[in-house]
């Protein structure tokens, strides 16, 4: 059985930490826009609906307007706002082109973790030996081309050998800069990662909000039950 090449690779590329903030709606909106424009052509997010996106990401304060915005600007691969976010490209075509079907990305953040995504998105490098011309330091021999190379630019990876003689990642070198500065590109990728964390579990914020109320209620209830118990147990010696 083929074994999945794992997070952080065996090649010593440490994952870069990323800060996640689901309250930052602007960041989430930016991430969603990048996702819909650059990823949804190949990848699906097929457990997610567009109208949920509109509701949670608040592209406008008015929910109706927010839905209209999503319908107008994001609905490339679907007809109705209540549709699931399917990929534009049929799976069979994708398999023919890349050898593997691009996986569904709805649960990516829960599966890989945000740091992995953030690092992956910024770690594509030129590799003549790969069919697409690209490779990735955290996903060896990835079949996905670097779709955002125009933004980031083109980088080469350098490797060294460690004491045991194993090839380990050393550094990247930019050989052609992109249309965005490294800072801007990193920020975009952080927004995209932030969006993936939202996408993996849209109810997260609600879950935590409800959690505080539940704990508050239980704490009050604890006081009541504690004194009830004390009252009854007065006469047990």
């Amino acid at each position: 059985m083929p074994v999945l090449s794992v997070a952080g690779g065996g090649n010593g590329h440490k994952l870069d930490p990323v800060s996640i903030d689901l309250e930052d709606k602007v960041s989430l909106q930016r991430g969603a826009t990048i996702f819909v424009n650059y990823c949804l052509s190949c990848h699906s997010a097929a457990y997610m609906r567009y109208n949920r996106l509109a509701k949670d990401l608040k592209f406008s304060d008015d929910p109706k307007e927010s839905e209209k915005f999503v319908a107008k600007n994001m609905l490339f691969a679907a007809d109705k706002i209540g549709d699931l976010m399917k990929a534009a490209m049929p799976i069979e075509d994708a398999k023919d082109w890349f050898g593997v079907a691009p996986p569904d990305l709805t649960l990516l953040a829960r599966y890989r973790g945000p740091d992995w995504i953030y690092t992956y998105l910024r770690s594509f490098y030129l590799d003549e030996k790969s069919p697409s011309g690209w490779n990735n330091t955290v996903f060896e021999n990835v079949a996905m081309p670097h779709v955002l190379y125009e933004w980031q630019g083109t980088q080469k990876a350098y490797f060294t050998k460690n004491e045991e003689g194993v090839k380990v990642f050393d550094r990247f070198e930019m050989i052609k800069s992109g249309t965005k500065s490294p800072q801007d590109f990193d920020k975009d990728m952080r927004d995209l990662t932030n969006f993936f964390v939202y996408l993996g579990e849209p109810s997260q914020l609600k879950r935590q909000r409800v959690g505080w109320y539940v704990l508050l209620f239980l704490a009050l209830f604890l006081v009541v039950t504690y004194f009830l118990k004390k009252e009854y147990w007065k006469d047990v010696h």
């Binding site: 239980l218 209830f221 604890l222 039950t225 504690y226 009830l228 118990k229 009854y232 147990w233």
Partner: peptide, 9 residues
Amino acid sequence: VKDIVAVVV
């Protein structure tokens, strides 16, 4: 009454 306290905790 004692077990209810434990349940809440």
